[in-house]
Amino acid sequence: MVRVLHRLVLMVLVIWLAASINFLLPRMTDRDPIEERLAQALGDSGGSAIGIEEMVAEYQSKFGTDQPLWKQYISMMGDIAQFDLGVSINYFPDRVATHVMAALPWSIALLGTATLISFVIGTILGALTIWRRKSAWLARIVPLFMILAAIPFYLVGLVLVYVFSLSLGWFPPARGYGVGVNMDWSWTAIGNVIYHAILPAMSIVLAAIGIWALSMRGMMVTVQGEDYMNFARAKGLSNRRMFWRYAVRNAITPQITTLVLAFGTIVGGAILVERVFVYPGIGTLLYNSVLLVDYFLIFGCVFILILTVAVSLMILDLLYPLLDPRIRAGGEQHG
């Protein structure tokens, strides 16, 4: 339980940190997002921007720019604590939350599936490289995946688009679903979504398999040196039991810790994959809001992504004791 509590405190600190940066930096650099947006909107539309005054009013009432800085800060923190992310500058008068929540399911589905697939394949491959040192196909394929792991997802994505979409025409190059497809829960729609998700998911899976394989390999080397593996062998246990119940079962626990640590990096990498495929998730939204200098939307995206990472990590923290009886029984294992 203390682990989860610890994680919770960390996450609150992280969000506070991100919010503070978002609050302080523009003020330190003397930039006014509203004015910038105003200038941009005027430039784009030739002066006929709709609702600019309302937006300015909302902005001023929200932050009370006439208020002292610390009051502005506290009121902003209060809003965040209530999950009030404010109003988008670009899509005014839409709330930031509306856009973020519309994009979030896409990202979670894509990223969750891709992470799960790569975790399973990578972990098994990593375990097998140590277990079957003589296997020729493993000796060839696993280093390949490990090298792929060094390459950012989005670069893999760029190559995949070029080969499988533009050259071979097997998969669509962009978007989350086909133009004109009705987004109900029909099989056609679901099939269409999956069809569109294959390439972006592939670019994450291809690059992430190696990450899991590499760390699992390391764990397996450690586990294989343990006395209990030697004793299991001296018991003449079946190869299958030694692999699954002794080796993998013990190596998987620290592998989960690696999953926790790598999660942030994977999420970060996935932002750009969405951008490559113009996938309707948080990554693309974030990219667009950067393009349009929409500070509130940028912060909203970052906030929700950190929150998602935090929730996933907390689920893992809750799962961890199930995997390791030493933590289940003995409470904390510090050190």
Partner: peptide
Amino acid sequence: RLVDIAYIPQGAMNSLNPVM
């Protein structure tokens, strides 16, 4: 092994699978 010939290991501390 175990049927005809069995081994009692050194290092009592770590010879058992910690998760079983």
